[in-house]
């Protein structure tokens, strides 16, 4: 564990708390992509199956359990509790286009051709693109509540912080995980546009609005 990773994980934790805070205070899931949230549940469930057969640390197990339960809870909030505030008509990204290539990639790139390792690989590839339905929705509506953009910024910061973590591990621990690194760089790159608007508008006190 190094500081980059710790701050990355804390940022991930903060992003989920911000998401829950947004839903609870506005009593609405408006502006959130159900598809992205459903993809995150898929990511966590397929990656953290090792909770049942591989113990890393208490920290690791607690975080994994939190990510699975909180992401499932968000789906419940979107589909049941605050269902009337969810608008599927603007959540139109075709997730088949993400799932198919991720299945294919995980069959080609994995560390062992076993069910668990292929699922792990799949979850890494899927996580790298899971935010796309959300960013696509943002692009479509052209604006977002500030709290939603803070959620996305924390999520993007988590991914960005994992990059120096990998550089650190490469030099200090002689460890490198090519699948995670490649997917992680792609994932972080997807946030570049968002971060540009976030820094130049939201953090200057303006509304998050995309040029028409």
């Amino acid at each position: 564990m190094n500081l980059f990773r710790l701050f990355g994980d804390m940022s991930h934790l903060a992003s989920i708390l911000l998401l829950l805070y947004k839903i609870q205070t506005t009593r609405s899931v408006r502006g959130l992509s159900f598809k992205t949230q459903a993809l995150y549940v898929t990511v966590f469930v397929t990656r953290y199956l090792d909770l049942f057969y591989d113990y890393v640390s208490l920290y690791n197990s607690v975080m994994k359990t939190f990510f699975i339960t909180s992401s499932c809870y968000v789906l419940y909030l979107m589909k049941k509790k605050y269902r009337p505030t969810n608008d599927p008509s603007i959540d139109t990204f075709r997730v088949e286009y993400l799932l198919g290539p991720c299945v294919l990639l995980s069959l080609i790139f994995n560390y062992r051709f076993t069910f668990a390792e292929i699922l792990w690989s799949f979850s890494i590839f899927l996580e790298s693109v899971a935010i796309l339905p959300q960013l696509f929705m943002l692009q479509r509506t052209g604006e977002a509540e500030a709290i939603t953009t803070h959620y996305l910024a924390a999520l993007g910061a988590y991914r960005a912080l994992y990059i120096p973590n990998w550089i650190y591990r490469y030099w200090m621990e002689d460890q490198v995980d090519p699948i995670a690194v490649t997917a992680g760089i792609v994932q972080t790159a997807l946030y570049v546009d968002f971060f540009y608007v976030y820094f130049t508008k939201v953090l200057q006190g303006q509304r998050f609005e995309l040029p028409a």
């Binding site: 690791n60 390792e117 490198v176 995980d177």
Partner: peptide
């Protein structure tokens, strides 16, 4: 550098 696949990250 050695490849991991150890999956100790989240």
């Amino acid at each position: 550098a050695k490849e991991t696949g150890l999956h100790d990250e989240l």
